[in-house]
Design a protein around this nucleic acid. Structure first.
Lengths: 196, 196
DNA sequence: CATGTAGCAGAACGTTTATTCTGTATCAAG
DNA sequence: CTTGATACAGAATAAACGTTCTGCTACATG
């Protein structure tokens, strides 16, 4: 004769998704618990029950970002048959996402964390390092798939990673998506010149 | 018969320089007035007397950063006779600075502001936009000086700006200066291929 | 419909924040 | 040495923070 109470009015995924959006838009410090309660529609009690606090919720957002933002956009680059064209499409996807989010937008969630919290938070730093390693590996993989002369794929992948990081940052400052597209096109021409 | 009181024990420049270092290292939100008093050696009274508050002091740091950090490093790129080699030396200077600051370091002060405060602070946003415009103009100028075929200098300058932004960000995450140097070398090879 | 467990909204708490205020120490001029 | 204007150190203040606590509400069960 177990008596069941009311069930919670949100799923952990909804909470994470909306918290991610909030942190992504305003950063960690500038987001208060009140903001999170308003943005997620979940009570303080629910947030603490589910994640234990603000910082733990923030950390949980990293995995959610990988699953719902990075993976869908980057899977094609990581696919076995990927080439430079997949990198191009990844950048285009990235720009259109930034545009849909409303430029000048919040940039890349991980990139923002890299600036704001990572330098003084070892756990966040690990997430950032893992993310960067994933991107670099994906770029290197697609470069190898693009055949061409045996260039130093590793260094080239690092260059693309640096460019991608800077592009997200630029999407925060620039109000024009077409300028970002032009930059990507110009940059990929440079890479093509090296690999073909 | 004017009676003169004691003179203040600091110069505005010293105050700005030390405040800049503090904001650069820890960001705006994570820097408290107590931190600023400790880091600058100037009393609260002195800070408020001189600048009126934390935010005003922060804004003053942007001009100081331009004068004491950006200009010394970037002047050669903006010089009349500059070429791609000056851009190369600028990057090398940038990396060695990051190394001397102790990698993983605080990145670029303006880049950090672009992430943390610029999105929701129009005054900071103006400083960031001005800084980016300065860098882009300098890069474009040096590209034109490098002769070569009449490429689209504007788009290429934007690509270099994006790369430079990403490189500062990478200097925050990477613990190895040599990897940054390799990336710069690889990137400039790409640019050279386009302009020669 | 009655039950009682657990989620809910919001008050309460102790810190920490930026800013203002108060009393003391200092030092150039007379 | 006396004077007095002003920089100084640190207390005081009001607001905002993350977290905890308290009553009340809702709802799956029997």
């Amino acid at each position: 004769m177990q008596i069941m109470p009311r069930s919670q009015s949100f799923t952990p995924d909804e909470l994470k998704a909306r918290a991610l959006w909030q942190f992504w838009s305003f950063g960690y410090d500038a987001t208060s618990m009140d903001d999170l309660v308003k943005a997620t529609g979940v009570s303080r009690h629910g947030i603490y029950k589910e994640y234990g606090g603000k910082h733990a919720l923030y950390l949980a957002c990293f995995a959610h970002y990988q699953d719902t933002v990075v993976s869908p956009a980057f899977a094609q680059v990581e696919a076995q048959s990927s080439t430079l064209d997949n990198i191009r499409r990844y950048f285009e996807f990235q720009i259109s996402t930034a545009e849909n989010l409303g430029l000048p937008g919040p940039g890349c969630f991980v990139g923002n964390a890299s600036t704001e919290t990572s330098p003084h938070d070892t756990e966040v730093h690990k997430h950032v390092a893992h993310h960067n390693a994933r991107l670099k590996a994906g770029f290197a993989h697609a470069l190898v798939g693009s055949a061409g002369k045996p260039a130093s794929f590793d260094a080239l992948a690092e260059v693309i990673l640096v460019f991608a990081t800077g592009l997200w940052a630029a999407s925060r400052t620039t109000d024009s998506a077409s300028r970002l597209q032009q930059s990507v096109a110009e940059f990929l021409k440079l890479i093509e010149g090296q690999t073909s």
